[in-house]
Every structure is written in C-alpha cells, then in structure tokens.
C-alpha cells in the first residue's frame, strides 16, 4: 500500500510542477524554491509527519521534504533547549542530504572531465 501511495504522491507533485512549468514563465529553480517553502509550511503544523506516516518513501524523496526536515530538526531541538534550538537544530536532519550532494558533486567534478 505504501508503494502505491508513494507512486501516486510523487507523481502528483511532479504533475503539478510540470503543469506550472509549461504554463508560466517560472523556471525549475523557482518551482523548487516554492516547493521547499510549501514543505516548511506543511511541517510547521504537523501535516507533513502525517503524510510521511501514510505515504512513506514517496513523501521523503521530493524537494518538499527538504523544507520539512529543516523545520522538523529546528522544532525538535527547540523542544529541548528552547529558543536557541531554532538555530542550532536547523540542519540536524537534512545535513546528510546537503553534505552528500556537496561531497559527491566535488568528487565527480574532480575525477571526471565535463562533457561539452
């Protein structure tokens, strides 16, 4: 059931983005930024946790989940240490993604020769 939900949710997000991309002058950069903000908004009142519970991996793959993990880490830390936690816990959950993206990008750029 989680597999089917993942398929439908991820496909739905991509469908909406493709429709926006085709019918307006926004670039993929605009759309991903908007989606991150929407993800942060959805998580701040616990909606995204519900989605992840019902959908599983399909909800963690889109860029929406980046905003979710930013807010989630910040709020979890704020729960423990108070106001300062909003700053210190911001990158707790999405650190793996950012670090992996930077490290792999750097390694492949150094090793491989760019095409064109």
């Amino acid at each position: 059931m989680l597999l089917l939900n993942s398929f439908l949710f991820c496909g739905f997000i991509c469908l909406i983005s493709q429709i926006i991309l085709d019918n307006s002058k926004l670039t993929p950069g605009h759309i991903t930024s908007i989606l991150v903000v929407i993800g942060a908004f959805l998580d701040s009142f616990g909606i995204y946790d519900f989605l992840i519970k019902k959908i599983g991996g399909g909800a963690q793959l889109p860029i929406l989940s980046f905003g979710h993990s930013l807010v989630h880490g910040a709020l979890a830390k704020a729960n423990n240490v108070g106001f300062l936690g909003l700053f210190t816990g911001m990158f707790d959950l999405c650190a793996a993604g950012i670090a992996a993206a930077i490290i792999f990008a750097f390694i492949f750029t150094i090793i491989l020769r760019p095409k064109n």
Partner: peptide, 8 residues
C-alpha cells in the same frame, strides 16, 4: 521532464 527535477 519534471519527474527528475522535483525529487532530490
């Protein structure tokens, strides 16, 4: 298309 750009 967007199927590869919107995920991570």
């Amino acid at each position: 298309k967007c199927g590869l750009l919107i995920p991570i």
